[in-house]
């Protein structure tokens, strides 16, 4: 291990500019990725904090029988998107209507029948937690006997769903692209280091060093490059967060989890990048 660490140190000292370029690129890649992640996290927070109260109202047919009502209730109870529900009879609906229009009681004098339908009023869980289920519940209810109509904020739910899915998709595409870029840069650095150390590698093979022993210093270089890149990216992200926080209050920073995640992810990227290139260029 002492030998591997000494060789790792040599690899860093011998190719300072190459290593600086590699760490800078990893830093830039991870910083861009973490910016988008920070954006997604804050988008999630905005959705959670500012979403309107999500209600669904299931209007029932006047001729609905008790069995149909029971079946509708069972369906509502079975769904995770439902936080709370209550049955509103025709009479309750009329009372509510009257109290809302208490200033104009003459409107009701002409009514000899109650025109309002009975309904189930459903309070939903936050739409972003499972918008698909919400839409599925509405469709299922609409198909049931005894249901006249289902009303809910369909447009808002789908918009939020699209926005969130879009953000996640960008994160994934960006993540993959930047991983590939990192692999490429780390790979090239390792290629140069292998080239610079080819004489020593040849002698190592000759005198019976194992493949794992020969590879180890290069893998450590990749690991350190990745960890440094992750650490620098986390620092830059925090500085960015502090700068933005002065202008936009309420922005959140995930804290040590993000820092540890970036360093860990950077290390894995660096290690994988060097592993791939060591296998490709070392031929041991």
């Amino acid at each position: 291990m002492v030998y591997s660490l000494r060789e790792t140190y040599k690899n860093f000292v011998m190719r300072k500019s190459t290593n600086v370029a590699a760490v800078s690129t990893i830093t830039a890649s991870l910083f861009v990725l973490s910016l988008f992640l920070l954006g997604t996290i804050n988008l999630l927070k905005i959705i959670r904090d500012f979403h309107p109260k999500m209600d669904m109202t299931v209007f029932l047919k006047d001729n609905m029988n008790l069995k149909e009502r029971r079946e509708i209730e069972e369906l509502i109870e079975s769904r995770a998107a439902v936080k709370h529900y209550e049955y509103i009879s025709k009479e309750q609906a009329l009372d509510e209507f009257k109290s809302e229009l208490a200033d104009t009681p003459e409107l009701f004098e002409a009514l000899d029948v109650n025109p309002l339908p009975s309904s189930f009023r459903i309070e939903l869980n936050q739409p972003h937690s499972n918008p698909d289920e919400l839409i599925a519940l509405a469709s299922a209810l609409e198909r049931m006997d005894g249901v006249e109509e289902v009303k809910y904020s369909e447009r808002l739910v789908t918009q939020l769903q699209r926005l969130f899915s879009g953000a996640i998709l960008i994160d994934i595409i960006l993540g993959i692209s930047l991983c590939l870029a990192t692999f490429y840069v780390v790979g090239n650095t390792i290629k140069l280091l292998v080239y610079a150390r080819r004489d020593a590698i040849e002698i190592m093979k000759l005198v019976g060093a194992t493949d794992a022993f020969i590879r180890r210093p290069f893998l450590i270089v990749g690991l350190i490059q990745g960890a440094l890149g992750g650490g620098f990216a986390a620092t830059l992200l925090y500085v960015f967060y502090l700068a933005v926080k002065m202008k936009i209050s309420g922005i959140v920073f995930p804290g040590m989890e993000m820092v540890a995640g970036l360093i860990g992810f950077g290390s894995i990227l660096g290690l994988l990048g060097s592993l791939i290139s060591v296998r490709k260029f070392l031929k041991v």
Partner: peptide
């Protein structure tokens, strides 16, 4: 096939170090 950045002792020792 000697390593130019190592002296005689280290060149010979290299063979043992790496094993």
């Amino acid at each position: 096939k000697l390593l130019s950045d190592r002296n005689c002792f280290d060149n010979v020792a290299f063979s043992l170090e790496v094993t």
